[in-house]
């Protein structure tokens, strides 16, 4: 990452710490009052309705939009940040193979004049194997299915060997086998000490792979360990038509299980 996009580089033991953070696209803040800590090996679920500031937070962490107020600190482990955007608008005819796309995740590690080393190539192979796409590694990226392309972008994020991984709605449009495979990948990454932030409206996912939950709706509603925060009261404050969300995803209402 370019140092200029990081307004306040505070080095901490945590992967990411935001204190009193406010982020904005223009002059009016899109998300305020953010106070979070994400530790290495921990996953945080970022939950809120559409337009509540989930993508805003991810873009703020990436330095793509400015931090208006507060401070943001990154741990040494979070020097490299991987990012899986929600939707990628790519030209399906673009002449790159899956392998070349995943190699883009290594670009920042390469010197100006150097070519990909065996380490780079091994990291790319491993990332592609990790998402189960080895058999299509040399296919043109645009010829892959939507689900395969999304896994390809995940492989690109993995190839950068991130200490902090940001995933924007990674489970959207995935079928059950792909969903399970992604869950498995996230567990492995956590075990390897990677800090993860994943936006989702899938509460089941939040319970299964995340350690902490951040609720947002233009501002921070609640943050903490999932069992403390994933309560009906919080859900009702964030989603006003909460019943609809439950129906869509056939999710057990958190809090009814007496956590």
């Amino acid at each position: 990452m370019s140092p200029r996009t990081r307004p306040i580089p505070i080095i901490t033991d945590d992967a990411l710490t935001i204190t009193g953070g406010a982020f904005s696209y223009g002059s009016t803040p899109a998300l305020t009052e953010v106070n979070i800590t994400v530790k290495p090996g921990e996953a945080m679920a970022l939950i809120g309705p559409n337009g509540s500031g989930k993508s805003t937070l991810l873009k703020g962490v990436l330095g793509l939009i400015p931090l208006l107020e507060g401070s943001m600190g990154f741990g040494k482990s979070a020097e490299s940040i991987g990012y899986l955007p929600q939707t990628e608008h790519i030209d399906p005819e673009f002449p790159v193979t899956l392998k070349q796309v995943v190699m883009m995740g290594r670009y920042r590690k390469m010197g100006l004049f150097s070519f990909p080393t065996s380490t780079d190539r091994a990291a790319v192979r491993k990332a592609i194997a990790n998402v189960g796409l080895t058999n299509v590694a040399n296919k043109r990226f645009g010829s892959l299915s939507g689900g395969q392309q999304q896994r390809g972008f995940l492989a690109r994020a993995l190839a950068s060997e991130p200490g902090l991984l940001l995933l924007d709605e990674p489970f959207n449009g995935l079928d059950q086998p792909n969903r399970d495979a992604l869950m498995q990948t996230l567990r492995q990454l956590k075990a390897a000490g990677v800090a993860i932030i994943v936006t989702t409206h899938d509460l089941e996912l939040a319970r299964e792979v995340c350690d902490t939950v951040l609720f947002v709706n233009g501002r921070q509603i609640a943050f903490g360990p999932k069992d403390d925060v994933l309560t009906l009261a919080n859900l009702q404050e964030v989603f006003h038509e909460f019943q609809v969300e439950i129906d869509e995803h056939t999710v057990v209402v958190p809090g009814h299980e007496g956590h």
Partner: peptide, 19 residues
């Protein structure tokens, strides 16, 4: 490399830190 990255995926290249 950043030209290829930018041409293929503007958002991704910006997220990777290329201005």
């Amino acid at each position: 490399r950043r030209q290829v990255f930018r041409a293929f995926d503007p958002e991704g290249s910006a997220a990777a830190g290329y201005r």
